[in-house]
Design a protein around this nucleic acid. Structure first.
Lengths: 194, 194, 194, 194
DNA sequence: TCGTAAACGAGACGGTACGTCACGTCTTTCG
DNA sequence: CGAAAGACGTGACGTACCGTCTCGTTTACGA
């Protein structure tokens, strides 16, 4: 236990409230407004926060929204480990598609779009979402490969692309749905090919 | 022989010059400027055209850029017909990836991103690019299937997703390149699976 | 002694500089440009001020110009009190006509014209200029009446119209000048009639 | 007598219909719209006439409106000749004020305002309205003077200013009405002073 | 009875200025 | 002395009209 008091920083303390108010406000705004309608001005007003405060913590809207998404990201899609690659894939891809279909899809599309315009954001987005998800999938595949459920020389990176590619492609273009047959087809495809 | 006279529209006819000046100006601007830096004001000024003229013919920047892209779209990627599905795919996917790698990629990324924000544009974009390209690929696959190079019950739509999905996924995320090995891998994948 | 503290408004205070820059810029612009040539854009640029700042404080150009005029209005025409109505009138009407002849005339014509188109501005214009000037003249007439230099039942409002009416009429139509003989004639007229 | 035939201009003659359609349309527009709301585009559309046709015959809106006014100008105010200056003035000034009160006032205010901005229009306006009306009043005064109802050396120009000045002044500022007492006061004033 | 030429309607053109919006920064006061 | 509040300069937005131009059509004279 620490008897010494923490020397308080001089000046007005940082408002913990402010940060959370922002995230909460954005979460609510996103339920009635499209991502593209969000403005720094609007968020500041909705959160009861000054614009400079916003800029002190986040460089742009995409970053705020990404923090919001991150808050609830891991709730949606876990990494199964059933002992069978096929079951694992069915669960993992299924969860992913369900999450995207049930509301997260719209925002993810927006963030992916934003990443095409803003390099700084792109980097964070890819690290936070894309790469982290890819890593999970690849770990899952690796377990399968170790069990001999894939060919020894299977290119797991490519398999990940063959999994996530069609998902994003359908999500972004909306020409077909991310339904159960799709999940099964993708899974079957990976198993057979790998 | 056509007896019916074409009723000409009254009023001053649309200036061919103006349209082309705009497209040319945008093409040039895009060589020195990012898509996101384009503004209607800037385009109007660069093209020596009034802003209202711009708005008369295009609702937004994305539409102008898409017209630019459409102008040169068919030059880049043709539809091969070698008699072998594998050769066809290698050529078609190869051309596609080369085109995207050699300059069109950045703009296509921007247009895809724009389509996530603007429903009206999304529809045109998907019809002009996505669907038309998918249709070509599917026709190519169909010829292969007719020759027995694919299973009889192969889901060609899904195969198209398995082809374009990874391409777009890599293009949008930049985590891997659209190089020759990738083209071969995708091709091999489709052939084996189909 | 004032115990009550004035509660200062939060946030950045209104920039005194900006306001004065605008008024100064307009004053200078008016020396080389006709009132009708003024544009909000031009004023903003000349004053080194943002357009929104202009609109924050003034609804239109006429209001800005009126503020400019108000700044120097009282310098030109004072209210004499010589003890003689005739002398007072000669001085007052003379000053008025000289002021209008020497530069203020053009702008006053423009403001009067603007007041015919914009009701909101008309009200402010009449209160700021017309009524305040009429009040001064009437006060002057009242002193004369109190000294018995006018008939007891003289209608001072009408006399004010008979004074200002011809002045504005000549100013607006330019068919005759506001010279010394005119001043004397108007004065003589009011004295004799009243 | 002229033997030479007038060489008719070749080509399609000016359309009488078009001109009248314009004037009629403007007259109607002015009943529901303020003068300042009129636009060349709107007039052309309302009259079913091309914009170039408008510009062929009138340089600006004020000129069109003035033609409308001129059409019905002489109906409202005639020049009485009762043999008595006082009666003449009461009738003439009375008619003038009634005309202005009953609808012409608003448009006349607008035209006077327009004349402050546009020198070309100002000249025509003053010749068409102001001077012609002044001339009538002065003729009327001259008859009275010839009958000895005014002083021999009376300055009729000044008297005209003393008559029209207050009328316009009240019309433009709206601080008092152009009612019968006003007419009588002005008349009495001129008679006594002259 | 036709060809010619001017005026017509329509409407697109290059422009200018509008009034608004959001940006990201700057300058206060308050806690 | 940092957070909040909000005014600031900037610059693009999309719109409204401007006055001009270029069409194909209509009309009435003169050859």
């Amino acid at each position: 236990m620490d008897i010494h008091k923490v020397k308080p920083a001089p000046g007005r303390p940082r408002s913990q409230q402010a940060m959370e108010a922002v995230l909460t406000a954005v979460r609510q705004l996103l339920q009635t407004t499209a991502y593209k309608e969000l403005t720094m001005e609007g968020i500041a007003k909705a959160a009861g926060v000054g614009k400079p405060t916003l800029y002190r913590w986040w460089p742009n809207i995409a970053s705020i929204v990404m923090d919001v998404m991150r808050q609830q990201a891991h709730h949606d899609v876990g990494v199964p480990d059933t002992g069978s690659l096929e079951s694992d894939l069915l669960l993992y891809i299924g969860d992913t598609c369900r999450s995207l279909t049930q509301g997260a899809g719209g925002i993810m599309r927006s963030l992916m779009a934003e990443a095409q315009f803003d390099d700084g954001f792109a980097q964070i987005f890819r690290e936070s979402f894309i790469s982290s998800r890819r890593a999970m999938l690849i770990a899952l595949l690796q377990r399968g490969a170790a069990r001999g459920e894939l060919q020894k020389d299977a290119d797991l990176e490519l398999l990940a692309d063959l999994c996530y590619g069609p998902i994003w492609y359908r999500l972004l273009n909306g020409h077909a749905s991310l339904d159960e047959p799709f999940v099964q087809a993708i899974t079957a495809h990976i198993i057979m090919r790998g």
